[in-house]
Amino acid sequence: MAVANPDTRSIDHVDEDASHDVPYHVILWNDPVTPMQVVVLVLKRVFGFDGPTATELMLVAHEKGKVVVWTGSRDKAVHYSIQLGTAGLQSTVGRDG
């Protein structure tokens, strides 16, 4: 069985391990303009949260200014952050909540 381009495979493997070893957070920031119900709905649709979970996260962001809404690989965190951003919600990706 031929092994195609083993160098590339090795690089991919290192990147994949690194992304799994270091958890990234998606941090949702409060904003004064988006209605609370809309924030709840977007959290439910993007992350699949149930209503109480999404509502609690929205309220923490509202009261504290920000909240960690998801933790995991960097690639997924970036994807989720883009999904929030393209619904008008401000978020960042980072290692510190």
Partner: peptide
């Protein structure tokens, strides 16, 4: 619609510098 309206709201907030209530 929900996404575009949300980004339009964010546009207004950014353009007008809305950071607080």
């Amino acid at each position: 619609w929900l996404r575009v309206l949300g980004m339009a709201v964010a546009l207004v907030a950014a353009t007008a510098g809305l950071a607080t209530d």
